[in-house]
Design a binder for these strands. Structure first.
Lengths: 335, 335
DNA sequence: GGGTTCATTGTAAACGATTACAAGAAACTT
DNA sequence: AAGTTTCTTGTAATCGTTTACAATGAACCC
């Protein structure tokens, strides 16, 4: 293994000088710099990042904690995070916490032990509430979930507005009994439900508690909840799901019952996915700007790493309503 | 920051002893061990992994290089890798190389600089061919792509058989002009094509080169290729795509042309995805055992880390043919 | 020209753990 | 009971860098 010492020797300088040209902290004479660079190339020297981290007390790694990377929402964010991080010379450690507070704590600790520069985190409600217990000195950027704690950077969707738009769209297209399925527990669900209810109220519709379901944010849960909806004596005429997995579950159930979309039941969901455009009719969704979320979160994090005392920011992005066939205007004769 | 020295002091022992109980290399008297453990808990001491890595010259991190984590195939594998790694106390650094040899080399170097214990890698053909140029001392496990280099661990699908089954299934259901789209360049594509051709030949069908397309393994490419197929004077009666992204592209094109599946055109593809079961008719696929691939690859890697001289293994897994509506037996009247 | 400043470089001390080595105590052997 | 072996522990070296500090010499200022 060729070390900095070898380079120093080859270039006829001290190790300190080599380190200086490589980390460009201080001035070194151009002639010397070139000699060092030449030696580096000659020997194919590559600094040992572990040693560097130990001495400098900082790593070029960030942690990313999501619930499950298989969720396309998080895959997409993670891709944006990795790209952005890499551009700035950072690597990313991936953690799947499964919405499990214990796993979250474990990973958070692990990441601290690894001395990561910071963490991008999509925490459970539990983690948010017990934030101070974790007593994390780490820079953190929260994504997708809002927190009252104003002292932490976050990048979020304007969930209330997005849910309001999605619901309003349904109402305007003639739907009246809108069943809603939210993934709990999370602030995100609460906000989305709020938008849903506000839209109903804005159109003088009453909020029917039987038409609101709180389930785990999983495909199976969406499937079950939808089944229950479809088997009600007075089933809803539209279903609104709070995320892509629930949407997939809902669609599965609708298919199984052989109900026609949107004639017998409309379907809209949060999160854009491949399948939403491939099925027929295509599904109306609110697309989240995942690329932007990932990119901004990473930038925010790296800025905080560079300047720890910077006041925290909360970036709120807007969803994009993509209207498709699954929520087409209801046949007036049915009204 | 509480260090090992503090623990040693609190427990009334030397730092060496603390290190010993924490890394359980040597024996230490139970009474002393308990005292140390107590001090560790009391002070909430957590070893600095960077320092540990520097001295011990090994990290508890592995690298995972895929082309794009947004591809469900890789999301799923990555999840399995992370789970398995975590069980054994390892973390995973995620890298997206975009099937780009330069990026691959960059990441490989980065991972070496980070001193990762090993790498799980889905390399381009280029990387495979130039393997020795990279002169990697790192333990590596190749996934998804086969290599002639017998000295490296790998876990692969039996692509020939899987493609053979998929094609045979189509033939048995009455399809005769089977258009095929493969993502190149890769050994995987070559093998899948081989299975495809063998199936045709086994049924005395001739291989028509116009019905075989080689494109980049991307959705858009699958879309374009399918469009070309559909606009042929004598279009195929079935389409076979070499991976999930191509399949999604193919379906999009078919939808756009408003062809009925499977009556006007059948569709089968490699890779199980959400959408394959959600669309109507559902799509016949060969499912790859992604969980197993990820798990086995990780186990193989960690075994090699533990025992560098172990002879390399090549694990070949079987795909699972999931027959669904998109390849239903062709209406005999059309034969 | 002497005193300051500034740029450039080297020496050696960190960083926080693991581990080679030595040494003392305990346990066996004969 | 003396000689061996084994167990347990501490001291100090080490991993490969960065960086505080000091030293040197050049440049600048009155």
């Amino acid at each position: 293994m060729v070390g900095i010492k070898d380079v120093a020797e080859a270039a006829g300088v001290s190790v300190a000088t080599v380190s200086r040209v490589l980390t460009k902290h201080t001035n070194v004479r151009p002639i010397v710099r070139d000699r060092v660079l030449e030696a580096v190339k000659q020997l194919n020297y590559r600094p040992n990042l572990v040693a560097r981290s130990l001495r400098s007390q900082q790593t070029k790694t960030i942690g990313l904690i999501v619930s499950d990377i298989r969720n396309p929402f998080f895959s997409s964010i993670s891709r944006a995070v990795e790209d952005t991080a890499y551009e700035q010379g950072f690597s990313v450690l991936l953690c799947n916490a499964d919405e499990n507070p214990e796993k979250e704590a474990l990973y958070l600790n692990l990441l601290r032990d690894e001395n990561v520069a910071g963490v991008i985190f999509s925490p459970t409600l539990h983690a948010i509430n017990n934030f101070k217990d974790l007593r994390l000195d780490l820079p953190i950027v929260i994504i997708d979930r809002s927190t009252k704690n104003g002292s932490v950077d976050s990048v979020l969707l304007d969930n209330v507005t997005a849910a309001f738009q999605l619901t309003t769209h349904l109402i305007e297209n003639g739907y009246r009994r809108i069943g809603a399925i939210f993934g709990v527990p999370s602030m995100t669900a609460i906000e989305r439900q709020q938008g849903y209810e506000e839209a109903l109220q804005a159109h003088s519709l009453i909020v029917v508690s039987k038409l609101i379901k709180h389930v785990q944010p999983k495909l199976e849960a969406g499937y079950m909840a939808t089944q229950e909806f479809l088997e009600m004596a007075q089933p809803p005429d539209a279903i609104f799901t709070g995320n892509g997995l629930l949407g997939a579950g809902a669609l599965t159930a609708i298919r199984e019952h052989n109900w026609a979309i949107p004639d017998q039941i409309a379907l809209v969901t949060f999160d854009e996915t491949h399948w939403a455009t491939l099925v027929q009719p295509a599904i109306t969704v609110v697309a989240q700007p995942t690329d932007e979320i990932g990119k901004i979160a990473t930038e925010l994090l790296l800025q905080r790493v560079a300047e720890p005392e910077r006041p925290a920011r909360k970036i709120i992005l807007q969803g994009k309503l993509l209207i498709r066939g699954s929520s087409a205007a209801r046949n007036p004769s049915l009204l």
